[in-house]
Design a binder for these strands. Structure first.
Length: 336
DNA sequence: TTAGGGTTAG
């Protein structure tokens, strides 16, 4: 934790532990709480004390700049890239973590060619990409629809002796599902059987969602019921996925039943579950329960998103929902 | 006692 008033740390002035490590730790903490002015102050202080930032200090800043680039500069990544280059010009050698940080920024903003370039550079510099490098890149490739390249990289990863971890497995399953290869994802899941990788709720969520989206609700339901048999507990996302899948098939009664079961099962619906059920009702012109749901949402300080709002307006225009509900809807508008 | 990473609902 960084204290609210960093001047309290002046005590370090007479402390021999004021070194690159303590500065980097502080800068990291300040970055996490977006206290940029103090970050600049720390960097200046380091300079005054003739302490040079090391690779880790730079990695923290590259990460921060990647995120800032995404928010403020439409993911151009110019600031992060410039900083990365300046690191090298200072004679510091970026390591795999530094590369991964920049690669992650590129992937996040779908600059896949640049990300690939980073991957090649890691190898060219004689370093070994780690599981994070592969996970980041494979996910990026799937996201831009280059599924063949993603699978090729997975093979390369396995060839390098890297063992797939839970996240890697999730990325592959999700990538296959999004590429209309749910059957293949399911085969892989069955192939692994009782492997530890299959005892993760996220894996189930990915597959159940993929099955619902391709219309195979029966298999989704089977997987959902098998969760409990395996001793796993559905989480709020599992329920939301199922509610959404049931609504998509017009099975509103079953969706409503599951929705109510959530509280009973110790996993109360969240904002998203409410929105999913509401959308299901609205899309199926089932408006009886809409007001009650909206009131419950208000009671929980939940809010409406743009697409649910738009469906509500449609039903008001169509006359299926009374205009008097507009006041309630207004109170459910997000505050920011 | 310094850094990165990555999977799921709307």
């Amino acid at each position: 934790m960084v204290p609210q008033d960093s001047s309290k740390w002046e005590v370090l002035g007479s402390n021999p532990t004021r070194n690159v490590i303590t500065y980097t730790s502080l800068i990291y903490g300040l970055c996490l709480s977006s206290r940029w002015d103090e970050v600049s102050k720390m960097l200046k202080e380091m300079k005054d004390e003739k302490l040079s930032p090391d690779v880790q200090t730079f990695s923290v800043l590259v990460d921060v700049f990647c995120k800032e680039d995404g928010y403020c500069l439409r993911g151009e990544m110019t600031k992060a890239r410039t900083l990365f280059n300046s690191l090298m010009s200072k004679g510091l050698v970026p390591n795999v973590i530094t590369y991964n940080t920049l690669l992650n920024g590129y992937c996040k903003y779908l600059k896949i060619e640049e990300a690939m370039h980073m991957l090649h550079e890691i190898t060219r510099k004689g370093m070994k990409p780690d599981i994070a490098t592969y996970n980041t890149m494979i996910h990026g490739l799937f996201r831009v629809g280059r599924c063949g390249a993603a699978r090729k990289l997975l093979d390369e990863m396995l060839g390098q002796g890297q063992t797939p971890d839970e996240c890697n497995y999730g990325i592959i399953l999700d990538g296959l599902c999004n590429d209309q290869q749910v059957e293949e994802a399911l085969s892989l899941f069955h192939l692994l059987g009782s492997n530890k990788l299959n005892s993760n709720i996220v894996v189930y969520n990915i597959l159940i969602d993929g099955l619902c989206k391709c219309g195979n609700l029966d298999t989704a339901r089977d997987l959902f019921h098998n969760l409990t048999v395996k001793g796993l507990h559905p989480d709020v996302q599992t329920y939301s996925i199922m509610v959404s899948g049931l609504c998509g098939k017009g099975l509103l009664k079953e969706a409503k039943h599951l929705f109510h079961k959530m509280v009973e099962n110790g996993c109360p619906p969240d904002n998203v579950t409410y929105r999913v059920l509401l959308q299901g009702y609205l899309k199926n012109q089932h408006c009886d329960d809409v007001e009650m749901l909206l009131r419950e949402m208000e009671g929980r300080s939940y809010s409406l998103d743009a697409s649910t709002l738009s469906l509500l307006i449609d039903q008001i225009v169509a006359g299926s929902i009374d205009r008097s509900m507009l006041k309630l809807i207004g109170r459910l508008m997000p505050m920011n």
